[in-house]
Computed example of a mutant assay.
Amino acid sequence: MSRLRSGHWLALATALIALDQVTKWVVLSHIQLGETIVVAPFWNWVLAFNTGAAFSFLSDAGGWQRWFFTGLAFAIAGWIVVMLRRHASDLHLSLALSLILAGALGNVIDRIRFGAVVDFIQWHVAGYYWPAFNVADSAIVGGAILLALTQLRPRPASGDHA
């Protein structure tokens, strides 16, 4: 495989941000707040606005959390861009970081535009409902899992991380 550059990873993150925003645009155009569309026995489309973080953490904090989470996401995004430049040829690490970057910025766009994150995927089983989420959230979770797995893999003795 040819040597990957940070620009490739940033392009992937940009494409995922676009996918996230398009899906949110479709949901905002077709689902009303409080409406539920059953997709499968375990899966609904809904429209929810989350002013907090994961699992609505700090959602009732009074508004300051919007800018706190926005600033935090920008700080993390800056760090990730630096890491992508340093480790662009590390496939697994860079993929994980690109997913996290896309998710963080996808949700920041919502916070800036709407004051809350647009969530619309709802999974449930036996009357228990997982909090609604979106494509950006999925990218963050997938990236975090891959990042954890990347840290568990054996490293070459020479220190070469490619």
Results as ranks from 00 to 15, higher is better:
Val22Asp: 13
Thr150Glu: 12
Ser98Ala: 15
Asp119Asn: 11
Ala54Arg: 07
Ala96Met: 01
Met1His: 13
Gln32Glu: 07
Asn44Met: 11
Ala148Leu: 07
Leu147Thr: 10
Val135Lys: 08
Gln32Arg: 13
Val108Met: 14
Val26Gln: 05
Leu91His: 04
His8Asp: 07
Pro154Tyr: 06
Ser29Gln: 05
Ala73Leu: 03
Thr23Asn: 08
Ala144Gln: 04
Tyr128Asn: 09
Ala61Leu: 01
Trp123Lys: 06
Ile76Ala: 13
Met1Asn: 12
Tyr129Glu: 03
Ala139Gly: 12
Pro156Ile: 06
Asp60Tyr: 04
Val46Met: 03
Ile100Phe: 09
Ala88His: 00
Asn50Met: 03
Trp67Tyr: 15
Val46Gly: 05
Phe69Cys: 06
Arg86Leu: 13
Phe133Trp: 05
Ser158Trp: 03
His124Gly: 08
Ala116Thr: 05
Ala162Asp: 06
Leu33Arg: 07
Val82Lys: 08
Asp60Cys: 02
Trp25Glu: 11
Leu105Phe: 07
Thr14Gln: 02
Gln122Thr: 10
Ala136Phe: 02
Ile76Tyr: 07
Val27Ser: 11
Ile37Gln: 07
His87Leu: 08
Ile140Trp: 01
Gln122Ile: 12
Ile80Cys: 04
Gln151Phe: 10
Val108Asn: 15
Val108Phe: 04
Ala75Asp: 06
Leu16Trp: 00
Ile140Phe: 06
Lys24His: 09
Leu147Asn: 11
Ala132Tyr: 07
His161Asn: 08
Phe57Cys: 07
Val82Cys: 02
Arg155Ser: 07
Ala126Glu: 11
Phe69Gln: 00
Leu33Tyr: 10
Ala54Thr: 04
Leu19Thr: 14
Gly71His: 12
Gly115Glu: 14
Leu12Ser: 13
Gly7His: 02
His8Asn: 05
Leu33Trp: 03
Leu58His: 15
Val38Ile: 07
Ile140His: 02
Ala157Asp: 12
Ala18Glu: 02
Ala162Val: 14
His8Thr: 04
Asn107Tyr: 01
Ala139Cys: 14
